[in-house]
Each structure stands twice: as C-alpha cells, then as structure tokens.
C-alpha cells in the first residue's frame, strides 16, 4: 500500500518535474530578452527541480539518501534567487534594456 503510494509520488514527481524542466528550457529559447528568460530559468530552478527531487525522495532506499536530496532542494532554494539577482543586476548595470513598456509608464500606473 505504502509502496504503491510512493511509486505514484515517484512517477508524478519525475514526469511532472521533467515536464516543468522542459517548459523552462523551452522558455529559455522562446522568450524575447534576457530578463524574461530569467523567469523561464526560474521555473527550472523551482518547480522542475523540486518535483524531480521529491519524486526521487519517495524512491530513495534509505532515509539518509532522502535527507541528502532534501539538502539539495534547500541549497537550490537559497542559491538560485541569489545568482538570478546577481545576473539581473549585472545585466541592468551593463546597460541591457528590457523589451516592452518602459519604467516611467509603469510607475505612473502604480
């Protein structure tokens, strides 16, 4: 019973996570500029990685393996936004202009 449930979690996690990883990579290719591509990379870093690692946690042979997988989740949880911010800030400081509406039009709305 528990084994069947764990198998379902494994399947859902690995296939669902794989789908999110592919969608994130597809966005990396499709989206128009570097800032919007960061959102796509964010999908891979959050939902894709979480689902796959949780699916593997459900399939791990002992609890130590599961704990290590959880540590990878925690590590990605903290490092991914930091490096994305560093990249966005570097691109902004480097003078890359985002496509779309400009900042003034947006700030008058809010």
């Amino acid at each position: 019973m528990i084994q069947a449930a764990l198998n379902i979690v494994g399947w859902v996690g690995l296939v669902g996570g794989g789908a999110f990883v592919i969608v994130g990579a597809l966005g990396l290719v499709r989206l128009p500029d570097v800032y919007s591509r960061m959102h796509a990379a964010g999908i891979t870093d959050t939902m894709g990685a979480w689902l796959m690692l949780v699916g593997m946690m459900a399939q791990s042979p002992d609890w130590l393996t599961a704990v290590k997988l959880f540590l990878i989740i925690v590590l990605i949880f903290f490092t991914s936004p930091t490096s994305t911010y560093a990249l966005a800030n570097a691109a902004y400081g480097g003078g890359v202009k985002p496509v779309g509406r400009d900042e003034e039009g947006a700030s008058s709305n809010s």
């Binding site: 999110f20 994130g24 966005g27 989206l31 959050t46 985002p98 779309g100 509406r101 947006a106 700030s107």
Partner: peptide, 22 residues
C-alpha cells in the same frame, strides 16, 4: 506562479507583457 508562467510559455501566441515596476 510556476503554473501561470508555464502556461504563458507554451501558449503559441506568447501572451507576455514584460515591464519594470518599482
């Protein structure tokens, strides 16, 4: 947010509206 952005990426017309806010 993931589900929302994933939907936008796989929609053929790419219904995004990138902009900066404060």
């Amino acid at each position: 947010a993931n589900i929302d952005v994933a939907k936008r990426i796989i929609t053929p017309g790419l219904p995004i509206e990138p902009h900066l806010i404060r």
